[in-house]
């Protein structure tokens, strides 16, 4: 565990807590893409099946359980508990355009042709694009609340920090996982436009609003 990895994990944890707090305190899921959150629930479920087959550490297990659990709570909030506030008219990204190609790719390009390994690969690929429905929603409505922006910034930072972690691990531990690195690069690149808006607007006290 190096500092990049730890701060990355904490950033991921923070993103989820920010999102849950936003929903709970405002009693609303306005501006949040339910589709992205369903994709994240699929990502965590398919990636952490190794909870049943291998034990790494208490830290590892508790984070996995937390990520899976909170992803389902989030989906429940959006589609049940705070459903009247869910803006489905603006959450129109076609997720089958992500799931089908990503599933095919996981089947073709993986480290080992076994069920758990293919599901892990699927999860890594899917995570890299899972935020697209949310970014699509922000661009469609032309705005994002500050709290949603903080959530997106923390979530995007997590994988960017993992990139630094992988560079560190490559040099100091000889560890290198091409699938994770390529997907991590794609994931981070997708956030670049948002990062720019966040730094130039949100940090100066303005909310993100795009020209119509």
């Amino acid at each position: 565990m190096n500092i990049f990895r730890l701060v990355g994990d904490m950033s991921h944890l923070l993103a989820i807590i920010i999102l849950l707090m936003k929903m709970w305190k405002s009693r609303s899921v306005a501006g949040i893409s339910g589709k992205s959150q369903i994709l994240f629930a699929i990502v965590f479920t398919t990636r952490y099946l190794d909870l049943f087959t291998s034990f790494v550490s208490i830290y590892n297990t508790s984070m996995k359980v937390f990520f899976i659990g909170t992803s389902y709570v989030t989906v429940y909030f959006i589609y049940q508990h705070f459903k009247p506030t869910y803006d489905s008219n603006h959450d129109t990204f076609r997720v089958e355009f992500l799931i089908v190609p990503v599933g095919g790719l996981a089947f073709l390009v993986n480290h080992e042709f076994s069920l758990l390994e293919i599901l892990w690969t699927f999860s890594i690929y899917l995570e890299s694009v899972a935020i697209l429905p949310q970014l699509f929603m922000v661009s469609k409505t032309g705005e994002a609340e500050s709290i949603t922006s903080h959530y997106l910034f923390a979530l995007g930072s997590y994988r960017a920090l993992y990139l630094l972690n992988w560079i560190y691990r490559y040099y100091f531990e000889g560890f290198f996982d091409l699938i994770a690195v390529v997907a991590g690069c794609v994931q981070t690149i997708l956030y670049c436009d948002f990062f720019y808006l966040y730094i130039t607007k949100v940090l100066k006290g303005k909310k993100i609003s795009l020209p119509a």
Binding site: D50, S54, V56, F67, F175, F176, D177
Partner: peptide
């Protein structure tokens, strides 16, 4: 480097 069987990352 090799891809590891046990994945310690999240």
């Amino acid at each position: 480097g090799e891809h590891e069987e046990t994945k310690d990352e999240l």
